[in-house]
Amino acid sequence: MELVGARPAPAFTVTFDGRSIAVLPGQTIAAALWAAGITSWRTTRGSGEPRGVFCGIGVCFDCLVTVNGRANQRACLVRAEAGDVIRTQEGTGSDGQQHG
């Protein structure tokens, strides 16, 4: 932030698994979670291993997350909006959640 002389617009908040997180306008959900020190937000369907960002450009689908009840959103592509309810996606994310 310092390096590029950033003067961001005021932060807003989203929640991740119920915890409040400050987000700068324009950041993707993945960037917001990284900034909050969170690196995993999905568990795999088979062995339940934690996953987060891998490719960072929308190719690998490892960073899938549930946003406002919609599963399978790529966190590295979707921009965070004020009030977003972000949840760790367990497996397919279809457990009681709307499928994306």
């Binding site: 932030m1 590029v4 950033a6 700068l24 324009g26 950041q27 993707t28 993945a30 960037a31 917001a32 990284w34 900034a35 690196t39 995993s40 291993e49 934690p50 996953r51 987060g52 960002v53 891998f54 490719c55 960072g56 450009i57 590295c76």
Partner: peptide, 24 residues
């Protein structure tokens, strides 16, 4: 290589350029 915190080199750069964030 599937552990969280293992990212592609280009992905780390992309997240830095667009979101001004570091993975760690």
């Amino acid at each position: 290589w599937t552990l969280p915190g293992v990212v592609t080199a280009g992905g780390a750069q992309a997240m830095l350029k667009s979101g001004l964030v570091l993975p760690g």
